[in-house]
Design a protein around this nucleic acid. Structure first.
Length: 255
DNA sequence: ATGTCACCTGGTAGGTGA
């Protein structure tokens, strides 16, 4: 079974690239972030035409998440129950015997900002939600754009980024809190090429210079850990003509 | 040294968020 996560930075713009990638990669499940579409604009028909059933949760201009699979996602929950939020950031669904949580974590802007405080509150609520789901569903995957680089090895210039957004101790403590549930970072279950990133700023020729961060992650539950057979970041779509700033992350689970 | 993109409003640019 192949699962993927991809921040597409506007599904309206990236739909053709998404369908191309799905056609080439044939994942069983993919979660999307930053669809930036209200629910009435979600391209369900075009995706169904390409063979993908979906559940989605969006808003105007910002955020927006979705889960796509060959069979219709079941038992869908939108956002975090009990956590009042104007922003569409989380979608949870059952598919192929797995509980899948797709999430677009808040950016946080800068330490000390209001948006950072929101990020901290959101992270706290998310951990509670994941713990609750984990208690009901042994086979669980939490994947998406975390907007957290968990370790210095996930940062192209850890000195320059020390204490900056995505790299603060507070954000990293929350990431470790998720690992404590426990969950496992699928990417780090394997030896990986050094300087593996999942996001490169559009500015500063960052992709050409491979100046990026690994902020998109796939965390798997204890019960799934042993079945994870591979995990990789697919840089290819970042080389497209009009790319998202993020690359997809893919995990494979043995049957 | 610098270098963007997507979306909105309100308009043929400027602001916001990332």
């Amino acid at each position: 079974m192949k699962l993927a996560t991809w921040n597409v930075n506007s599904l309206a713009v990236r739909l053709p690239q998404l369908i191309d990638w799905l056609t080439a990669e044939q994942p069983d499940v993919i979660v999307l972030q930053e669809t930036k579409l209200t629910d009435d604009k979600f391209p369900a028909a075009a995706l169904a035409e390409a063979g993908w059933q979906a559940a989605w949760f969006g808003q105007k201009t910002y955020n927006g998440v979705a889960v796509l699979a060959r069979e219709a996602p079941q038992a869908v929950v939108r956002n975090i129950p009990g956590f009042a939020d104007e922003q569409a950031r989380v979608i949870t669904a059952s598919v192929g015997g797995l509980r899948v949580i797709g999430a677009y974590f808040p950016n946080g802007q800068a330490p000390g900002s209001e948006k950072f405080a929101y990020k901290m509150a959101w992270l706290e609520a998310l951990r509670g939600w994941v713990a609750q789901e984990l208690s009901q569903h042994e086979h669980l995957v939490l994947m998406g754009d975390y907007n957290i680089a968990p370790e210095d090895s996930d940062v192209y210039d850890p000195v320059a980024w020390a204490g900056q957004i995505h790299c603060t101790d507070e954000e990293r403590a929350h990431f470790k809190g998720l690992l404590g549930l426990p969950l496992h970072d699928a990417f780090r279950l394997f030896e990986q090429p050094p300087k593996s990133w999942s996001w490169w700023d559009y500015r500063n020729l960052a992709f050409r210079k491979n100046q990026g961060l690994r902020i998109d992650h796939i965390l798997v539950s204890d019960a799934l850990k042993a079945s994870v057979s591979a995990c990789r970041i697919d840089k290819a779509p970042r080389k497209n003509e009009r790319p998202s700033d993020h690359a997809p992350v893919v995990v494979e689970l043995a049957p």
